[in-house]
Structure formats: structure tokens, C-alpha cells
Amino acid sequence: MSRIAARFTALAKAGRKALIPFVTAGDPNPEVTVPLMHAMVAAGADIIELGVPFSDPMADGPVIQAACERALKHHVSLRKVLEMVKQFRAQDNDTPVILMGYLNPVEVMGYATFAQAAQSAGVDGVLSVDLPPEEAHDFLDELKKVAIDPIFLLSPSTSDERVRKIAAVASGFLYYVSFKGVTGANRLDVGAVAAKLGSIRKLTQLPLGVGFGIRDAQSAADVSAVADAVVVGSALVNRIAELADQPEKIAATVSTVLTEMRRAMDAQPAQAVQR
């Protein structure tokens, strides 16, 4: 069983939902990232999503685009991100780490080379935003060889037929994008999310994470009532942006936000999930 599947199984047994923070690797500088990952785990993160900086993050809003630009000023390449994961693994062998980013850095490295390097660094899942299953065949083969979970997105516009197609090749969990738009926008409608998750659950047994638009403890708790995992990105990256000139304060500030989310999620009475 992969680290990700094991983590979801354990959480389900404990009646808890996964909190998945997203930060861009190397933002605002490469020294911040590994200590920040450890701090997030201490603050209640169950899985860490690490953004791989890309020059043209088409699916992201201004907050994460700016994070990519800060990291790229320090030339944080995919190889450097993998080194960070390796460093993190030296002290934490349990917390799953997912790389999230765009295909081109992986394409240029080569799928096989990337898959092997990611495995040896201790990566558990990979989400390539601009790689739908239709184009993913060769990439999936390489990930399978090294037992890394391919994480795919679902959106409000994804049809039942596509949910089936995507669920058939995904593992670990499915990441539901809560609205049509880019990261960081404020358009979360928990009722609409709950309805769509209900119909997706009829089509797959995979755990369902929800991201986009989760900004505070309240929205994290609301989403955790209907999802298996809550992904929070821009809300954290915003704090990092504000502290770009005081990087020593980042870990504590991000931890405070996560601690509040964790507390609110754990206080949320769990709703019976229809399977």
C-alpha cells in the first residue's frame, strides 16, 4: 500500500479528514521549504503538496504565479525540488508528499528519469495540472513502474463518463476542483461541492480531496464535512508572500493557520459519507 493510501485508511479509521497544505517549493527562497514542511506536519498536515515552480502556470491565479516567480528567481528546478523531498524524508518517513505542477519540466527531464528520481527522493504522488489521462499513457507507465500514485483533477464540468475514465487510471485520491476558475479565487459553494461529490462517489471508491477557494478555518471545516481531504494553497501562499522579506517568520505563521484549520476540521461533526 502506498503512503497515501495508508494515510487515508488510517484517517478513515480515526474518523478524521486529511488536511493537505500546498506550498510552492523554493518560495520565497530554497532554504525555507524543508523546515516549513516539517512545521506543517507538526501543525496537523496529513499530506504535503509541493508545487514545482513553472514559468507559465496557466491554471493558477496571481498568488501562485507570483510564488513561482519568487522561486524561479532562485532557479528552483525540478531537480532541486526532488532534493528538497529527499532532505525532508531524512527526518520524516511517514508523511506522504505529492508534487504538483505542469508537465514541461517533467517532459524535458524525461518521464523514466523523473519517475526513478522521484521514487528515490521519496515522492508518493504526482499531479500534473496540464496532463489529462488522454495524453498520460506513457507517463502513467513510468509512474506505475515505481509505484508512485498519479493524482488527477476532477472539475464541476467533468461528466460521469470522464469521472469513470479518470478514476480508472488514478490512485491515491482524486482532487476535485471546487469551481470553474483558477487557484486563489473566492467562489467556493460548499452545497454545490457536496452535490457533485455525491455523484462522484457513486462512480469511484477513491478518497476525494477538495481544493480551490478554501481560505480559513471555517471553509476548511465546511469542506471537510463533505470531502475526505481539504487542500489549502493560495491562503497559505498569500501569508508566505507577505513574509517574503521576513522568511524566518513563515513557518510559525503558516503553522498557526493550519492549526486553526485542523482544530475546526476535527471539531466538525463527521457526516455519514454515502458510498
Binding site: 496540464d130 489529462p132 488522454e134 495524453e135 483533477l153 464540468s157 467533468t158 470522464r162 476558475g181
Partner: peptide, 20 residues
């Protein structure tokens, strides 16, 4: 049918754009 010119072309986009 999938928009490929040999190895080029295709559809490398986020899921939200796939149905539209």
C-alpha cells in the same frame, strides 16, 4: 482524432477545460 501531428499537438490542458 486526438489532435496529434505525429508526436506534436494534442490536448495538454487542465481538467476544467476538457469538456468545453
Amino acid at each position: 482524432a486526438n489532435g496529434h501531428f505525429g508526436p506534436y499537438g494534442g490536448r495538454f490542458i487542465a481538467e476544467t477545460l476538457m469538456e468545453p
